[in-house]
Amino acid sequence: MAGQFDGRGVIVTGAGSGIGRAAALAFAAQGARVLAADLDAKGADGVVREIEGAGGVAAAVVGDLGEQSVVDEVVRTAVERFGGVDVLVNNAGIMDRMSAVADVTDAEWERVLRVNLTAPFLLTRAVLPHMLAAGRGTIVNTASEAGLRGSAAGAAYTASKHGLVGLTKSLAVMYRRQGIRANAIAPGGTATGIVVDADRTAHGPAALGPHFVNLGRVARPEEQAAAIMFLASDAASDINGVILPVDDGWSAV
């Protein structure tokens, strides 16, 4: 299991499925010790078993990453098991109902922002002391095509991903002199288990419909994971504050 991440401690959120699972397996295949965090116990435990079955080192923490106590457990476990955190991949996320602003409920807004933006903030804040003490660290966030435009999702999801883009850039500027890099990928359509529970007759989905004609092909989770791996690697040592579209050219249209 030796490779470019040999011996490094990596936290991957949303590791139970989709892009997170692909990233966790890819890091482990390159020698990383992986902490798989997910709300789904079966998915997180399954990834750990797969990594350990291949001779790697992994651990799972199950819980809602919007809760400070779960975030504390994730970071504490990674530090205790791996000796530190070299890479944080904030990948966990949920979709909204494609709702237009006038139709967004308080519950939809608060849940989407909590998972997609507050949880990455909480995790980043929790790992920073360890990275600062080590004098190095890499953070890779999973943003979205919706973080680059206003026509790829509903109001809550769009706001959350624009916020994640801003958080990424702020981190890059504020901590570059301390040896910490922060970048993000902006996936287009990707074959994951995320389900959009939308009323197609509502104003939001109806208004967004025409804008999806330039979606491009649907990517495999492994393609997104490859971009995450690159941004986290030493090969990207001078790349900081970048939002990398992985979308078959959708962002270029």
Results as ranks from 00 to 15, higher is better:
residue 237 S to M: 04
residue 16 G to T: 10
residue 146 A to T: 04
residue 226 A to Q: 13
residue 172 A to L: 13
residue 104 V to F: 11
residue 73 E to H: 08
residue 156 A to V: 07
residue 82 F to N: 10
residue 31 G to L: 04
residue 42 K to Q: 15
residue 6 D to M: 03
residue 94 I to A: 12
residue 41 A to F: 01
residue 88 L to V: 04
residue 86 D to A: 04
residue 228 I to R: 05
residue 105 T to Y: 12
residue 186 A to N: 07
residue 32 A to W: 00
residue 193 G to W: 00
residue 113 L to G: 03
residue 42 K to A: 15
residue 146 A to M: 08
residue 140 V to C: 11
residue 36 A to R: 01
residue 235 A to L: 14
residue 247 D to T: 08
residue 126 A to T: 05
residue 162 H to W: 15
residue 201 T to L: 03
residue 179 G to F: 10
residue 8 R to P: 01
residue 2 A to V: 09
residue 61 V to M: 06
residue 91 N to H: 03
residue 199 D to W: 02
residue 120 P to F: 01
residue 24 A to C: 10
residue 46 G to V: 11
residue 43 G to F: 06
residue 214 N to S: 13
residue 233 S to D: 09
residue 3 G to R: 08
residue 219 A to G: 13
residue 216 G to Y: 06
residue 88 L to T: 02
residue 28 A to V: 02
residue 114 R to H: 03
residue 182 A to D: 01
residue 253 V to H: 12
residue 202 A to P: 01
residue 30 Q to R: 14
residue 92 A to S: 11
residue 82 F to H: 05
residue 52 E to T: 14
residue 183 N to W: 02
residue 169 K to G: 07
residue 198 A to Q: 12
residue 183 N to P: 08
residue 173 V to P: 02
residue 31 G to K: 01
residue 16 G to Q: 12
residue 198 A to P: 05
residue 17 S to A: 15
residue 82 F to A: 07
residue 221 P to H: 11
residue 201 T to K: 07
residue 247 D to I: 09
residue 126 A to F: 05
residue 241 G to A: 05
residue 23 A to L: 06
residue 46 G to T: 09
residue 232 A to D: 05
residue 236 A to G: 10
residue 14 G to E: 06
residue 112 V to H: 10
residue 171 L to A: 07
residue 202 A to K: 04
residue 52 E to M: 06
residue 139 I to Q: 06
residue 52 E to W: 04
residue 34 V to H: 03
residue 151 S to H: 10
residue 34 V to K: 07
residue 197 D to G: 00
residue 21 R to K: 15
residue 153 A to H: 13
residue 168 T to V: 08
residue 82 F to Q: 10
residue 149 R to T: 15
residue 80 E to I: 00
residue 176 R to E: 08
residue 109 W to E: 05
residue 12 V to P: 07
residue 137 G to Y: 05
residue 252 A to W: 05
residue 251 S to W: 09
residue 205 P to Y: 06
residue 19 I to G: 11
residue 186 A to C: 14
residue 79 V to E: 06
residue 15 A to Q: 07
residue 48 V to N: 02
residue 194 I to V: 13
